[in-house]
């Protein structure tokens, strides 16, 4: 990394706005936070002057937990908002909600919403630093950062890696962010799954489409399986979970037949659908490393966006 590089972002809305250098910089700073998590006292006072609100309009367990733990490890004051138990159920608009929250002197907002562009909207509306924790099928940048961080940890670098992403590509924000990031860092990406779950124009994303799982497993360094969202079943996109598993689930026998690929999954895993249980728990799986690294990456993002001087 050149010495005159400067990280120059106020928000993390999506990886589309970040250059390859920006991404590398966030990952290299995440190394420092991973070290903190291994200390006897894994806590630093760096954000003790900051108040952060986690604004979750969509259900989430691990992303919200991971963000909240990252914030607490850095000494921030944290308030959580979830739409089910708030005045949203009384009909308050998003704009009114965030304006009200801003009036309480909030420094940073972590937002998840089912509509694409929500994080951008919030960034335009209030003066806080915004981190996108998922907006519809658009982006989920911290998930992609932690995936790339985990690949870098395992393989030394992301450039040149062969990555196959398997499953519901069309509806996945995780995939969108991952493809953007992986392409910027120089990885090759193939997406694999039923035709009905492929995006309309894969060429624009710079990826190749395959419907042959075994050819992909033969080719790849990393196989990233995505969660099949149960609510998609019955929409006619694939016949049944069992049939999906037959064609696109990674099975125990694949571990023997293709001895080189490493398994990742953004969680939560549907055991017996995307992955057979033995595959998820095998030593080739780095799913739990992803979870640990998620904390380090989110701490790094919070640190870098917490601002220098208050404006």
């Amino acid at each position: 990394m050149s010495t005159d590089y400067e990280f120059n972002h106020r928000h993390l809305l999506g990886l589309a706005d970040y250059s390859a250098q920006d991404i590398q910089y966030v990952l290299s700073q995440a190394d420092r936070f991973l070290e903190i998590l291994n200390r006897p006292v894994p806590k630093i006072p760096t954000l003790r002057d900051k108040t952060i609100v986690n604004l979750f309009y969509e259900n989430s367990t691990r992303t919200r937990l991971s963000f909240e733990l990252a914030q607490k490890r850095m000494g921030a004051d944290v308030v959580n908002f979830s739409s089910s138990s708030s005045s949203v159920s009384k009909g308050e608009s998003l704009k009114d909600t965030i304006r009200n929250i801003e009036s309480m002197k909030i420094d940073m907002v972590v937002v998840r919403h089912s509509s694409p562009g929500t994080a951008h909207f919030v960034a335009r509306t209030v003066n806080a630093a915004i981190l996108n924790a998922g907006d519809g099928a658009h982006e989920h940048p911290t998930q992609a950062l932690l995936d790339m961080f985990t690949m870098r940890q395992k393989f030394g670098k992301v450039a040149g890696l062969k990555v196959v992403i398997i499953g519901d590509i069309a509806h996945s924000r995780v995939v969108r962010s991952n493809i953007i990031g992986l392409r910027k860092l120089g990885a090759e990406v193939i997406i694999c799954g039923p035709k009905t779950l492929m995006p309309p124009s894969p060429d624009e994303l710079g990826v190749t489409v395959s419907h042959d799982l075994e050819a992909c497993l033969e080719w790849c360094d990393v196989a990233m399986a995505l969660r099949i969202q149960m609510e998609r079943q019955g929409q006619g996109l694939f016949p049944s979970l069992r049939e999906y598993h037959e064609r696109f689930g990674i099975k125990k026998r694949h571990l023997k037949e293709f001895p080189n690929f490493t398994i990742m999954h953004p969680g939560p895993v549907n055991r017996g659908v995307e992955l057979e249980s033995e595959v998820a728990d095998s030593e080739r799986s780095i799913i739990l490393n992803q979870v640990t690294n998620g904390l380090a990456v989110r701490m790094a993002a919070l640190y870098l966006l917490s601002g220098g001087q208050r404006i």
Partner: peptide
Amino acid sequence: LDVTFYRDDFRTKLKMPTVQVTE
């Protein structure tokens, strides 16, 4: 040791400083 995280003065600068290795 890198003490960036424990400093009381990093917010007086415009950019967050790059953190070096602690081991």
